[in-house]
Amino acid sequence: MAIEKWKLEKGAQCYNCGDATIHDIVVDEYSIKIRCRECGFSRFYTFHMVDLPAKSENTKK
């Protein structure tokens, strides 16, 4: 389940500074980091669980 880091951006109102700013989002295999470019306030999420569909015909390999 090795994946490359995803780098995303999202324009939203910052929870900390309240300004409409760009947030950098880095999605890793086991974590997500969201950082406000304006005030540097970051939120960290860690991997909790995975929910996989049952292997069936429509799951392409």
């Binding site: 900390n16 974590s31 997500i32 005030c39 540097g40 306030f41 970051s42 939120r43 960290f44 999420y45 860690t46 991997f47 909790h48 669980m49 995975v50 929910d51 996989l52 569909p53 429509n58 799951t59 392409k60």
Partner: peptide
């Protein structure tokens, strides 16, 4: 969106950078 496999994450913490 193809197979429906989902990964869940939970908040671990927040960090304020001192300017």
């Amino acid at each position: 969106t193809n197979c429906g496999a989902a990964r869940y994450y939970l908040i671990k913490g927040v960090e304020k950078e001192e300017n």
